[in-house]
Each structure stands twice: as C-alpha cells, then as structure tokens.
C-alpha cells in the first residue's frame, strides 16, 4: 500500500501433486531440471527430491582436480538478502535445507546444469515481477 507497511502474503507454490509427475529421467539418479514444473529434482540417498525454483538462491560450479562440484544454495533466513516482507517461505522458525553439494567428473554437465538453474531462476523472478507490476 502507499505507506509501504503491507506485509506481503506468502504465496504457496508446489512442485508436484503426485509421484507419477516426476520426469522419467529420475530413474538415472542424477540431477534433473524439470522446466515445465519450474523444479530441480535432486537425488538424495536414492530418492528423487523436488525443490521448486522459488526455494533456490543460486547454483555454482567449482573444480578441484578431476572433480567438479555443483553447489545449490537455497533461500533461508539470516542471509541478509531481500526485504523481510518478501521472504519466499512461510515459516521463518522452521528448519531449512540451506545447500546441497554434488560432485562428478563431468564438469561440462555441471556447467550446463548451473546455467539452466540460473536461467530458470531468472525467468521465475521476471515472471513474478511482471505479476507484481500488473497488480500495482
């Protein structure tokens, strides 16, 4: 509102409703980017775990000898980013997954995944901004 005191309501988002919505590629137990559902599916101990793009802060690739590392950072409290009223989560007193790091010898793949995540994030932020502009 005009005083700028309105607390933005958290908008709920959801990756999937049913487990048959996972992309078939999750069988390979690797990282899968699901553009259609704006979701990154990460393999954790044999289980495909969806993370909506709205939870992701960024992804970065680094190299160490023959290994490449992909670190996916999630939004969580206490990171000093964004305004308080725009925290993309419902409950700041909850526990948060803050990052997941994977490694592989295929560095090109990680560069590509990091790139795809950045693009997906950029598109999601853009969409959100367009929505806000419409509301104003």
């Amino acid at each position: 509102d005009e005083n700028g005191v309105e607390v933005k309501k958290f908008k709920r988002f959801e990756s999937y409703k049913r487990d048959n919505q996972f992309p078939p590629k999750v069988k390979e137990m690797g990282i899968v980017i699901d553009q259609k559902n704006a979701t990154i599916v990460l393999p954790v101990m044999g289980r495909p775990v969806p993370f909506h793009i709205n939870t992701i802060k960024n992804a970065s690739k680094s190299d160490e000898g023959e290994w490449s590392y992909l670190r996916i950072n999630f939004l969580s409290p206490g990171q000093g980013v964004g305004r308080k009223d725009e925290q993309p989560f419902e409950d700041a007193s909850a526990h948060f997954v803050r990052s997941l790091t994977f490694k592989s010898t295929d560095g090109d793949r990680y560069a590509d995944i990091a790139n795809q995540i950045s693009n997906l994030k950029r598109d999601a932020v853009k969409k959100e901004q367009e929505k806000k502009d419409m509301e104003d």
């Binding site: 690797g30 997954v97 990052s99 790091t101």
Partner: peptide, 11 residues
C-alpha cells in the same frame, strides 16, 4: 548415482 552427494547444510 552419477551425481554424488558430498554435503548437505541445514539452517
């Protein structure tokens, strides 16, 4: 898997 999990961080 082909993507090996190295670390998880919790807040």
């Amino acid at each position: 898997g082909k993507d090996m999990l190295c670390e998880v961080r919790f807040y």
